[in-house]
Amino acid sequence: MKQNYIHVPSVKTPQIDRQVVLPFLKSLEISFKNLQVRFFRSLITTMSLVLAVSFLSFVNVSTDVANSLLNTHDISIRQALIRSGYDVSPEDTSVGSSPKQRWIVILSLLVCVVGIVNAQLMAVTERFREIGTMKCLGALDRFILRLFLIEAGMQGLAGASIGAFAGGFFSLLNAFLSFGPIAIATVAWKEIALSVFLAIVIGCSLSLLGVLYPAILAAKMQPVEAMRAEY
């Protein structure tokens, strides 16, 4: 933003009257309506996030469960863990996720971001005219940017929350089925809550990261280009 406002002689109104504003609550309202109206489109964007985040959450919670099982120092449980595929050598006191597992998680998150960018670019193209109209009505670049970021934030929060809880739930279910009730009894809930929370935060950030480029593209658009677009 330029700091030096050029003096405009014929406009005698004081500076305060020359503002162009979009209150935060109003942008929240507009974004929410946009999501409502384009429910299925936003559902697709959200679904890719749900899947990726639930995978992340599943892996992390499973590791938490395995760790708390290991901390029981019970030989038979240690055997059960090894049987179900964890690399536990006799001197280990904790299990980490294997490098391969980490790679798969990172890859799935990357794929998810690419999917979000793709879906959001489509959404921007679809809304060229709407964005241009808003700009003709006096919207600033940052209003448009803010609308897209709020929408992505809401999608991110919803998608990541559903994904994180679903992943956590299925991980616990899986542990219960393979190790029996003891898996649930020994669970360190604090660790699991932390894993789920982390998954939600990562999911939200991914959603915002994915929308950044499309949103900047939309915000930078000249209103006349938007008017020309034939959709």
Partner: peptide, 24 residues
Amino acid sequence: AYELAWLRCRKIGYIFQTFNIIQV
């Protein structure tokens, strides 16, 4: 950009061939 937005907002009203009512 800021002053231009202000101009579009306060000084000029636009009417388009394709109406351009915001659909949502």
